[in-house]
C-alpha cells in the first residue's frame, strides 16, 4: 500500500513554479481595489497554495486512505473551530473599549 510511486522532480518543479506564481499574484492583487473581495481572493489563493503543498509536497495524493481521512478530519475540525466561534462572536455585540 505505502509503496506507491511518488512525484518526480519535474512535477515538484512544476508545483514550485505554480506556488511562486500564485505568491506573486496574491501580492499584486493586494494593491488593486476589489472592495470586499480583497481578503476573499487573498485567502482563496492561500488555500489553493496550501492544498498544492499538502497533495504533492506532503504526498497526501499518493498516501493511503487512512492518511487522507486523517488530514481531512483535521481540516474539517479547524473549520468547526473557526465557523462556530465566528458565528457566535459576529452575532453578538462586543463592547469595543477605547
Amino acid at each position: 500500500m505505502a509503496e506507491q510511486s511518488h512525484p518526480t522532480p519535474k512535477l515538484y518543479a512544476i508545483i514550485f513554479i505554480t506556488l511562486s506564481i500564485l505568491t506573486c499574484a496574491t501580492w499584486a492583487i493586494a494593491f488593486a481595489d476589489l472592495g470586499i473581495f480583497n481578503p476573499i481572493v487573498a485567502v482563496t489563493i492561500a488555500v489553493i497554495k496550501a492544498v498544492l503543498v499538502i497533495l504533492f509536497f506532503m504526498h497526501v495524493r499518493y498516501s493511503s486512505r487512512l492518511t487522507k481521512i486523517t488530514v481531512s478530519a483535521g481540516f474539517f475540525w479547524l473549520m468547526i473551530l473557526i465557523t462556530l466561534s465566528l458565528s457566535d462572536y459576529l452575532s453578538r455585540t462586543l463592547r469595543v473599549v477605547p
Partner: peptide
C-alpha cells in the same frame, strides 16, 4: 502561506 496574506496584506490597495 496563511500568515502572509492575513498579516501583511490588509487593505494594502
Amino acid at each position: 502561506i496563511f500568515l502572509f496574506p492575513l498579516l501583511y496584506l490588509i487593505s494594502r490597495h
